[in-house]
Design a protein around this nucleic acid. Sequence first.
DNA 1: CATGAATGAGCGTTCATTCAT
DNA 2: GATGAATGAACGCTCATTCAT
Lengths: 241, 241, 241, 241
Amino acid sequence: MMRVPDEVDEPEVLDAAADELAPDGRALRAERRRNERREAILVAAQRVFRDKGYHQASVHDIIDDARIARGTFYLYFASKQEVFSQLVDEFLRLIRTQVRRISLEPGADAPLDQLRANFRRVVATVVEHDDLASIILRDPISFDEDSRGRVDHFFSQVLDLLVSALRMGQSLRLVRDCDVHMVAVTALGGLRLALVHMLMAHGDDPVVRARERAFSHAEAVADELMAFFLRGMTPAPATVG
Amino acid sequence: MMRVPDEVDEPEVLDAAADELAPDGRALRAERRRNERREAILVAAQRVFRDKGYHQASVHDIIDDARIARGTFYLYFASKQEVFSQLVDEFLRLIRTQVRRISLEPGADAPLDQLRANFRRVVATVVEHDDLASIILRDPISFDEDSRGRVDHFFSQVLDLLVSALRMGQSLRLVRDCDVHMVAVTALGGLRLALVHMLMAHGDDPVVRARERAFSHAEAVADELMAFFLRGMTPAPATVG
Amino acid sequence: MMRVPDEVDEPEVLDAAADELAPDGRALRAERRRNERREAILVAAQRVFRDKGYHQASVHDIIDDARIARGTFYLYFASKQEVFSQLVDEFLRLIRTQVRRISLEPGADAPLDQLRANFRRVVATVVEHDDLASIILRDPISFDEDSRGRVDHFFSQVLDLLVSALRMGQSLRLVRDCDVHMVAVTALGGLRLALVHMLMAHGDDPVVRARERAFSHAEAVADELMAFFLRGMTPAPATVG
Amino acid sequence: MMRVPDEVDEPEVLDAAADELAPDGRALRAERRRNERREAILVAAQRVFRDKGYHQASVHDIIDDARIARGTFYLYFASKQEVFSQLVDEFLRLIRTQVRRISLEPGADAPLDQLRANFRRVVATVVEHDDLASIILRDPISFDEDSRGRVDHFFSQVLDLLVSALRMGQSLRLVRDCDVHMVAVTALGGLRLALVHMLMAHGDDPVVRARERAFSHAEAVADELMAFFLRGMTPAPATVG
DNA sequence: CATGAATGAGCGTTCATTCAT
DNA sequence: GATGAATGAACGCTCATTCAT
């Protein structure tokens, strides 16, 4: 989380410098202010989209929350669609960086440990970025067409990942004989709804929090999910995991 | 104001009587046409709501699809909300009639057979009413408030049912020690997404149908779902189911 | 009020007979039913227009009240405007027949007695036809253009009558030196609002009836109006009236 | 998250301060333009409501008259009802400030002089705000429910005022024995219609102006009204007024 | 003759986007 | 760069009138 501001921003600063030839503190500050403003709009939009969904959210809601003028919004984003699209992309990027292919290299951790680590990272990321996650875990029917496409594509990538993992598991005799596509879909659905409930457990409404307290501990959610996926409901001992 | 009593009113009385006691072909046909039209609007609305969600669907879309005038829509339904609400209610009713509590009476079928029968009935109903099911399986954030309430209530009833079934299973040593709420939520999420994919497998787009062909056989879906819920992914033999 | 039905309707019956050449009981009854139906619609329309005004009243309200089908309404009247127009005309005709020019012929009653008789007849007619009167006493801004024109014309005729009566009164030294047009307008306005309150006193709302009980006796209203118009508020004795 | 405190925010603070403490010409001009626009809409709405009444007037009429876009109307007023309501309230306020209770204090003017002053002020206000007055003098049946309530309440207050004034007049032997409620209503009705005709005399239609030229001089109208109310039509000398 | 289903222009209102200041 | 007034297409809904039965 700690970062040295100047280094990260440098490339942008250089671009700006090219315009002026003599970059002084003013340009730097202007650039930084621009980024802050942009970020503030994204944060406001996050809250609004989480609460209302894409179509029901209005630009009015966003600029109200961000305390900026209507026109200012359009200085930073070309449209309501664009700001939503960027939020979606940011979250997809976040999740993608948390999921790593399971390595079967000799020195690697046990596959199930790698799987558990993936689960835990995803769950932690969802909790950390709860607003974004709430948006993406929704049915994309309520998105604009572009974002719907990207989210659908993301989840189909996730499914592909799961399917290939299951196939590998089957070849290793770690996974039983089953329709891997169906199992992948079902597991993803279970994961998604469990994550939604976990977000409720971290929400503001105390009644909902109480109802969903089973989901309040993120790591426990991750582990219980894994246990369920691996062993189902029955008490027969699973030798793995 | 004084009037000589005469037979002036008789024909009317007879007419009215004829209307009520012996409806002729005309009235019958009118009634049937009315019902057909109403049904046609419901079907059109189903398609539109399935494709766009509640808020994004416009009355214009529905009347275009149904090929009727604006006013005609309002002859049959008081509002866009009402037609949506009726679709939602109809589907919830359909599903509720297909799910039966598992009986532990001496003469009853084995609990797992009863469970499997429930699964199969639900899956079959979903396939049979694919448009309605597509609507209800969505995130209710895109519904009107009333319908959202009813759907949320329905799914929370389903969860309650699952939780109590799991508890009973635990007391019978049929279900392992686990967080029943979390398992119930995860199973429901898995079921829901699997049903969504099954609906894709029954849709019109041949590309999608090919991709989802694993879900094309409804009964197989039901059975595989049950197997996954009961035994998870691992090959350890489950003695039950 | 008592009338022999057959005689009054005869001319119309003959018309119908011309069509058929052999008028039997059927044609007679049909004609009578037609008139009754027409009258029923007018009565229903009266109630509706009284309660809602012209533009706010809908054809739906009228056919609901008359318990007929939409189409039936248009069999008897070409439009909502026409039925309103006929109600207006009927009331104007009623009032016109009650107001008679004051005669100065040697054998005639005293002018003030004639005037009082006019007042009383008008007030009695308004009470008797309270629904119609309620409609016409309203501001004609809420009428259709045609009816507004006719009502405006009617009241301007009334004003002309008043003005000429006042001029005559002045020539007879019965009326003081004043702007007769202004006095006529003011008197008419007073009369109209008093009549409106009298109608309230005859309405259904018991609270309103109680508030307006000063207006409950029609003849007293007529006499008090005349007294006010002739003598104003001051106690100076008027030798006339 | 760690940030080196710097002067990044200062310019904003200064800007904000400049906005609030020393509004420049731009802000002032914007404010003025805003008020002008708002006023223009009110004026257009006045004309439209005067010509058509509340229900028959459409937002389309108003924005056409004001030569603005649909959306612009709703920038300044929340609804058609609100703009009407504001016009009504403004006029009621105007009139209320012109009517003062008659003082019987030793040093006060003669009661009849105070009464005449009230009449003249009201008449002058009506002439000055002819459009608003035209609206309010109409039958409130054509208003929205809220405004109808306020106007009805206003006129019932006026009646109460008249009734109590008449009662006081009776106790002072300045008013003859009569039904004060009925006299009050009749006087109010006379006043209202006289004002309506006075507004016609100040309207644009030259034919109407000619017909109503008796009402063209506002003060004369006020005085003639008072004379009529006090003395009626008869020539018997009234010692008062 | 009576019916009531069907029509579509019109209503009041919202909101994403533009642009002069 | 920031503003917010202005825009107008689109929304859900109403209602006077028509017409096949």
